[in-house]
């Protein structure tokens, strides 16, 4: 196949050199080329937020983002950095403890979106939480425990910072 292009991707602080077709989405490359299946596909057209990843700190639907566009940018996924990320881990703990996870399929996207939200706004109001997550669909929880988990993560992270 001579339509392959060499692409270098920085995912969770680790560099991956891959040869891909230029029309491959970041979601396809993460899941199929790099075997990082934590990022899920649901609608494939940017309506559900399930496949959210961070690109230079911004939430992006990986199903609508070409992998070659991510070159030279910092990609963050639910798998996190190999050495561990305290903020991500606190959000994950809060989601688990507050019951914010049911089937778990939307969870990686929700957690990633929460990381971006709390990065921009460490003490969001309930309105701000709900507005930040409006593009992230969940069919199991009714969102109540998800909102509680985000509030819990925000307050625990705030306490951490004070210490």
């Amino acid at each position: 196949m001579n339509d392959l292009v060499d692409v270098s991707l920085q995912v969770n602080g680790v560099r991956y050199d891959v040869a891909i077709r230029p029309w491959r989405t970041l979601l396809e490359v993460l899941r199929e080329t790099l075997g990082m299946t934590g990022t899920k596909r649901s609608c494939g057209e940017g309506q559900c937020g399930t496949c959210s990843v961070l690109i230079d700190g911004e939430v992006v639907n990986a199903c609508l983002y070409l992998a070659i566009e991510a070159q030279g940018k910092e990609i963050e996924t639910i798998e996190g950095r190999p050495e561990g990320e305290p903020v991500l881990q606190q959000i994950q703990r809060s989601f688990a403890e507050k019951g914010a996870v049911q089937c778990g399929f939307c969870t990686p996207g929700m957690v990633i979106a929460t990381k971006a939200l709390l990065g921009d706004n460490p003490q969001p109001s309930e309105d701000e939480i709900r507005e930040a997550l409006v593009g992230h669909l969940c069919r199991c929880t009714g969102y109540v425990q998800i909102v509680e988990a985000i509030q819990d993560a925000a307050s625990r992270l705030a306490r951490e910072r004070l210490r």
Binding site: T37, G38, K98, V101, T107, P108
Partner: peptide
């Protein structure tokens, strides 16, 4: 008791495997 799901950790960390995975 209000016990979180026993598989919560794998789900929040993106390690759960669904059919597509």
């Amino acid at each position: 008791r209000r016990i979180p799901r026993i598989e919560s950790r794998e789900k929040v960390e993106g390690r759960s495997q669904y059919i597509a995975d």
